[in-house]
Simulated scan of single mutants.
Amino acid sequence: MALGISALVIALATASVSPASAQEALADAQACYAGRFDRCAFAGDAYHEGTSVAVSFEMAAQLYRYGCNGGDMRSCRAMGWIHQQSPGHGVPTSLSESHRFYAMACTGGYALGCYDLGTLYWTGQGVPVSWPTGQSYYERACGMRHADACREVAYIYGRAMGVARDYQRMAALLRQACDLGNSTACQEMVDPVGAATRADAEEGTGTSGSGGAQAGQGGAPVIVVGMPEPQFQDLVQRFRRDTRTYAQTALARDLASGGVTLSCQQIATLMQTSAIDSTRVQLGTTLWPRAVDPQNFYLLPQALEYEGSRTLLRQQTGH
């Protein structure tokens, strides 16, 4: 291994964190390398998010990879996720690798891997757009008690996304999502017909509830341009120049108050300049009102690692 326990100890010794939390991260890493592969993802998360040790994407990737090789499906899903992100997450950006790791996690019974795989097919990321395939993976994740996946399938039926419209089935799936903890679904199940109608009115034809692909005639994805690309790349560098939460959120507030316009894909990219999910939520919430393509909101939750963060973002943006 390129990085081992000695490197972990050095990183812990130089990190400005509480000794107790740092020791917990070290214990997870030691357990991971000792064969407790279920602990690898927890150690990887600590290094990726910087919650208890100094951020190290390379070390996080090593821990995720070690856990996945040992059969921990949560680690496999994490490998898929970091391969899907912008460069700088410890591995090269590769949608084919994302697909491979998500498929491993899904086959291994990890619901979030199936959900992410469904989104790749639904939105055509690294694979041709295929609503039937996307739906099949969403349904598989829903069967594994993944709340967001159940809500996705509900909207597929409520909005007749490649299937016959079925409000009864939509209502049942929204209730299931609600029972599994999706608070938005709890509100929507009161009036599923109204929820589907509002989604159609707000987004036009072609997207499922919170995570489907925007589509135009014939179901082809529509690419929406926000800020011109040269200006946007300069903006990305400004966010990367100082990744402290205070600096990034202050910059986001300045942009929002200055009337900047961004596509949802651009907002998601700016969110990913932070390694911390809570900061990403703040950036997404602040910049969301400046989106020129609100129908593509589903891209923002995809920029987050944790389900709790996704739920918080939806609550704060009114989704």
Rank of each mutant, 00 (worst) to 15 (best):
A177N: 01
D45S: 09
G90M: 12
H83D: 05
G258W: 12
R36D: 10
A149H: 01
I276G: 02
P289E: 14
N69D: 15
N69V: 05
G113K: 02
P228W: 06
A199K: 00
H89M: 13
P289I: 14
C178S: 01
R175C: 01
R39E: 07
A213Q: 07
I10K: 09
D116I: 00
V225W: 06
E305R: 15
D166P: 04
V127Y: 07
S274M: 05
D72E: 11
A7Y: 12
A154H: 03
M59T: 11
A199I: 01
A201I: 10
C40Y: 08
P228F: 08
T261E: 09
E152Q: 13
R314N: 02
Q187F: 05
F42W: 07
E188M: 07
M59E: 08
T123F: 05
P289G: 14
Y155N: 09
R310S: 01
A111N: 01
D38S: 11
A34P: 03
A103S: 15
H319M: 08
T123A: 14
L117F: 04
T273P: 02
Y102D: 12
C142K: 01
T311W: 00
M79H: 10
A220K: 15
A149M: 02
E307P: 01
Y121Q: 13
L312W: 01
M79N: 12
Y167Q: 07
D45C: 04
D254R: 15
Y110A: 03
T123G: 14
Q187P: 00
E139W: 06
L8I: 13
W288G: 00
R244M: 04
F57L: 12
W131K: 09
I276R: 10
D166L: 06
V91G: 05
G113V: 05
T133Y: 00
A105Y: 03
C142M: 01
L235Y: 09
G194P: 03
R240W: 02
A60W: 06
G50F: 09
T207G: 09
S208W: 05
Q237M: 04
S86W: 12
P19E: 10
Y33P: 02
C76A: 13
P87Y: 11
C40P: 07
H48W: 08
A256I: 10
R238A: 08
M271K: 02
